[in-house]
């Protein structure tokens, strides 16, 4: 694996030497921002977790020049990205492509969270059913009626003091 990486890197570097001279002629009117707009959505094919637009290696510099060249030749963003995927694999994309095994990355978390939510909701219902019948009327009726007649500020203070007492 490692050997392969070095080999591809070498080939790219070699090929880019020629590309570079072309880029100087052909990609001159493409601004850095236009290049970075694409590069920021790609990851360096050889380093770990480094976006291509801020990657400091020489290889990455050459890749950015390659993007510049392709842009000057009229390639679209999507075509350039596809070019990188075809040459260096899906790891250059900031997210796995939505196909095959990779679909798992998108579906597993929501599924687990949904299961968690369902468990929590059912637990709530169970808890409420256990106690709800005898307690529910009290919650609704008695405190409210006293609350409406009494001064709301005193009521807050009373509740507040009660809570502090409970803590002690």
């Amino acid at each position: 694996m490692k050997k392969l990486n070095i080999l591809t890197l070498f080939i790219i570097l070699l090929s880019l030497f020629s590309v570079n001279t072309v880029a100087a002629q052909g990609g001159g009117d493409i601004s850095d921002d236009e290049v970075n707009a694409i590069a920021s959505e790609l990851f360096c094919p050889v380093c770990e977790n480094t976006p291509l637009d801020v990657c400091e290696t020489q290889a990455c510099k050459q890749w950015r020049e390659l993007i510049r060249l392709k842009l000057s030749e009229g390639w679209t963003d999507a075509e350039i990205k596809q070019y990188f995927v075809d040459n260096y694999g899906a790891r250059v994309l900031a997210e796995p492509p939505k196909e095959g095994f990779n679909l798992l990355v998108y579906f597993v978390p929501p599924a687990i969270i949904l299961i968690g939510a369902v468990i929590l909701f059912r637990a709530f219902k169970e808890w409420k059913n256990d106690n709800g019948e005898k307690d529910a009327p009290i919650t609704e009726a008695s405190p409210k009626s006293t609350r409406e007649t009494s001064n709301p500020k005193d009521d807050y203070l009373a509740k507040f003091e009660e809570e502090l007492r409970k803590r002690e």
Partner: peptide, 9 residues
């Protein structure tokens, strides 16, 4: 195959 799970995700 290696994939990247990056900031957009």
């Amino acid at each position: 195959s290696k994939v990247t799970v990056g900031p957009p995700f």
